[in-house]
Write a protein that binds this DNA or RNA. Structure first.
Length: 105
DNA sequence: CATTTGACAGGAA
DNA sequence: CTTCCTGCCAAAT
């Protein structure tokens, strides 16, 4: 049963594995997905986003902990509010990666 | 198979 | 601090 799951499917799996109150950078997700430099490919997958309600893409932020985009709600604004609501430590308009960065389990 | 695009990252000006 | 360029990768057309 030779099936080659697209990279995006891997990305979705990783993102779904991020617990509430934690975040990952696009690069981190890319690494977990199998490519340490596919940060752009991760963005492509997110934008494809087959299930917004199933994939917590709001837990994925840029390398500086800042949100780069969001297709749902009010966009970046809603994204930040969601993260705050889940207990993510914020540093101004950015996420405090020093405490809220999810590093595997 | 070639080209374009995209929610990135990092460095230079 | 902002803006532009380069490098990188995957999916869609």
């Amino acid at each position: 049963m030779p099936s080659q799951p697209p990279f995006s499917a891997r990305v979705y799996a990783v993102v779904q594995g991020i617990p509430a109150g934690k975040v990952m950078t696009y690069q981190d997700v890319a690494e977990e997905a199998g490519s340490s430099r596919a940060s752009r490919a991760v963005g492509t997958a997110m934008k494809n986003n087959p299930d917004l309600s199933r994939i917590p893409c709001h837990r994925v932020v840029g390398s500086d902990g800042k949100m780069r985009g969001y297709a749902a709600g009010e966009g970046e604004v809603t994204k930040m509010q969601k993260l705050k609501a889940e207990g993510v430590a914020f540093a101004g308009e950015k996420v405090n990666l020093q405490t809220s960065r999810w590093k595997g389990a």
